[in-house]
Design a protein around this nucleic acid. Structure first.
Lengths: 226, 226
DNA sequence: ACAATAGTGTCTTTAAGACATTATTCA
DNA sequence: TGAATAATGTCTTAAAGACACTATTGT
């Protein structure tokens, strides 16, 4: 192993982020149009080089990049998968460690330097292999959404149960039964009341809830189609 | 992005494999004692450098390494996670793309050049951050074991339902109820009979089954503790 | 006959799905 | 008062858990 040290060409190392949120009832992803080659003018996921002189890991590189480019701090994210090979980047054999970030809409800047929110069913062909990365993210979110609290990361820190249910429905792509959804959520002890009430434009005010930390994952499904 | 090209130090790029199997009723992992620095004499996961001149991706690198070092071919594997940072390898800022491979015991060589099988509850402190990699693999296997056909990859191509149940019990660390287990497996149509019968040392002969391909994942649990 | 293992039947318990009902607000 | 939304109640259905039972082999 170490006898090979120095004789092996090192690959390009980047990170890419699939930043998702909910806006106007649909799941959207942050994209930007590449200002330079390669893939100049083509839409792509936010990403950048790993800086081996300052980043203490790939996670740190994503955090730095999302902070610098989008002003994001303290968001939820998890590593998705690593994409690699000689052809995915025309500049050479490359490794991209892909991450998924889930953020409430209001934490994203309105319009920052060409970054835009695109509904996931309206995403054009992307640069590099970013189509595959996005697909992996959606698959992961859908999969984990059914048995974890992930969809809650797409909305604000406090929310009503109706808003939470809407987030789950948006992620899963199905309608859920209100009664079953609430029963399930209640028996899992995932949430706690904040005490505050939220008034919708019309109708009865709803209680505000927040996530109680540490619990993330549960068994079985939520409330099936109503 | 591309303006940084060339000004960024490229990290070391390796792959590591958590190869698991079942032997004598317990889950084991393939380890070897490192013959050279760094971590000379310390146990580690099998792994090696990505060869950017021949490997078409990290997957190809693992396949090559497991073929050359252990004679393994055509095994089941999936990407686990990527570990990175300036300190995990004393030779410099490194990226390791970790994979999990599940193989039947009989496909592993008896004893090849210092590679050995170690029960997962007897693993010593490992080189690099391989402890964390192993932990990730076990967590993934346990998690997916409850709702996928993964544990079947640890045993031979044909098997009896009792053997399959034992594999699940081994992975999940719990006893399962025979009747519930069989009911679940049956209604999922994951298996098909080979037609052959297998005679245990004592008792009634059992039917041999094999996996029917494509189906991998299912909902809910198996047959709880009996 | 009996020990050992394979395989089935059925009752109980629990969770999910469907859907009706009550509650609270504003115009 | 009625439209709109929040919250709860209850019946039905389906899946999981528990456990007893039958079946087939070798000694």
């Amino acid at each position: 192993m170490s006898d090979e040290f120095g004789s092996v060409t090192r690959p390009i190392a980047t990170v890419d982020a699939v930043i998702m949120t909910i806006e106007d009832g649909s799941l959207k992803v942050v994209l930007h149009r590449r200002p330079e080659a390669p893939f100049q003018g083509v839409m792509a996921l936010p990403g950048g080089w790993i800086h081996t002189d300052e980043d203490v890991g790939a996670e740190a590189a994503v955090r730095r990049i999302l902070r610098d480019k989008l002003g994001l701090r303290g968001f939820f994210f998890e590593q998705l998968m690593t994409f690699s090979g000689p052809d995915r980047d025309p500049r050479g054999w490359s490794v991209s460690i892909a991450f998924m970030a889930l953020v409430p809409r209001e934490e994203l800047p309105r319009q920052s330097d060409g970054y835009s929110l695109v509904a996931i069913d309206r995403v054009p062909t992307l640069a590099f292999d970013h189509d595959a990365i996005l697909e992996t993210a959606i698959y992961r979110l859908r999969g984990k959404g059914a048995y974890s609290v992930l969809p809650a990361k797409l909305i604000g820190e406090t929310f009503t149960l109706s808003q939470l249910q809407a987030a789950y429905e948006c992620v899963l792509g199905t309608k859920l039964d209100k009664s079953s959804f609430r029963r399930k959520i209640r028996e899992l002890d995932l949430l706690e009341k904040t005490g505050a009430m939220v008034s919708p434009p019309m109708g009865r005010p709803a209680e505000a809830w927040r996530l109680v930390e540490d619990k993330m994952v549960f068994n079985r499904t939520l409330g099936g189609a109503g």
